[in-house]
Structures are given as structure tokens and as C-alpha cells.
């Protein structure tokens, strides 16, 4: 096999000092201009991909049922739609919370996400405990840690009664720091 262009690129030693400095300039110039081109493309690409780093969704109140439908002292799972689901989200647009009617006019909404690693905790009504299926975290009825690896109590979501409807404020999945 023979290189068809033996002349190309191989004649540094024949160049005059002017040619050398011109070449140096052209190399730097090409690199600089190339970088500008790369930056122009990279700016929107990186911005598009890392936007979720900085984006916070607005929070909205979602009705989860009529207040009279909840019995005092009972803890039930309620589901509601996320704040601003994408059109193709399908069932992933849904979120859930554990809702308990404390008394006639106060409700508590617990996150379903275990503070250990986020798995969905289950409420055991007779045992009065929340238990996590992943790594065995257990919480008391008030959400404080009863056993296992969770470092923090179950987070609570804002909840209110408006016009007879129980409403939960949509919140980000709580992430334990």
C-alpha cells in the first residue's frame, strides 16, 4: 500500500519562518473558530438536557374527594394528578398520598415515599403502622420512624378542605438529603 499523496503535510522542514508563523496562526484560528461553532450548538443542547436541574413545577391543589367521604381516624390511599403532566404521561401522571381524617375539620396527608430510598410504604390499619416493602422501614401512625433504615419521618403534604372537597397540594417526590 502506498500513500497516494506523499507531499501532503510532510514538508514542515522546508517552510520559511513566515510560513511557520502563518501556520501557527491558522491552527489557532481554526481551533478557536471551531470552538465557537461547537459552543453555538452545545448551548441549546446542554440547556435542553439539564433544564430539569433547575426547573421547579408550580404547585396546585387537587381535590381527592368530598370531606364527608372520609371517616374520622381512618387512613386511606388517595390518588391525584400531578401539577402539569406532559400530554403523553399516561398513568405516570398520577401520584398518591396516605390521607387521614384526624377530626371533623383536620386532615393529614403523608407522602407514600419512604425516606430511606423512596419505595411506596403501605398502611396496616389494624397494626397502626406504615411498612416499606423494600428494605423494611416502619413508621408509626404519626409518620415518625418506628424501625428500620429510614432516616426521617414520613413527609407530609399540604392538605385543606375547600367547598367540602379535600384538596392536596401537588408536591415533588420528597428526596432525602
Amino acid at each position: 500500500m502506498k500513500d497516494p499523496n506523499p507531499e501532503a503535510g510532510g514538508n514542515h522542514c522546508l517552510a520559511s519562518p513566515e510560513e511557520l508563523s502563518r501556520r501557527k496562526f491558522l491552527a489557532r484560528f481554526s481551533l478557536a473558530v471551531g470552538s465557537v461553532g461547537a459552543l453555538i450548538v452545545a448551548f441549546p443542547v446542554v440547556g435542553f438536557i439539564v433544564a430539569p436541574f433547575f426547573q421547579r413545577q408550580r404547585e396546585v391543589w387537587r381535590s381527592v374527594g368530598k370531606a364527608q367521604g372520609f371517616k374520622v381516624g381512618e387512613t386511606v390511599a388517595v390518588e391525584y394528578e400531578d401539577a402539569a403532566p406532559l400530554p403523553w404521561a399516561g398513568v405516570t401522571a398520577k401520584s398518591a398520598a396516605w390521607l387521614r381524617r384526624e377530626n371533623a375539620d383536620s386532615f393529614i396527608a403523608f407522602s407514600i415515599n419512604c425516606t430511606h430510598l423512596g419505595c411506596p410504604v403501605r398502611w396496616l390499619p389494624k397494626a397502626n403502622l406504615f411498612m416499606c416493602p423494600c428494605h423494611g422501614g416502619v413508621y408509626y401512625a404519626d409518620g415518625t420512624v418506628a424501625a428500620g433504615p429510614p432516616p426521617l419521618p414520613l413527609p407530609r403534604y399540604p392538605v385543606r378542605v375547600k367547598d367540602g372537597d379535600v384538596q392536596i397540594q401537588t408536591s415533588p417526590v420528597p428526596i432525602t438529603q
Binding site: 436541574f53 426547573q55 413545577q57 401520584s95 415533588p172 417526590v173 428526596i175 438529603q177
Partner: peptide, 27 residues
Amino acid sequence: AEQAGRAPFIGQSLGHFIMGGDTVGGA
């Protein structure tokens, strides 16, 4: 996301970055 959340300083943002938002969803 919860595992990434334990990283110092950027944990919270990293967690939301993995989910592509505040919750698991369309993104």
C-alpha cells in the same frame, strides 16, 4: 433518584434530574 439525592449540595437537583422533573412522569 433518592440515592443520587444523598450527594452533598447537588443531591436534590440530581434527584430531580434523574426523574426528569419533580415526579416520575412523561419526561
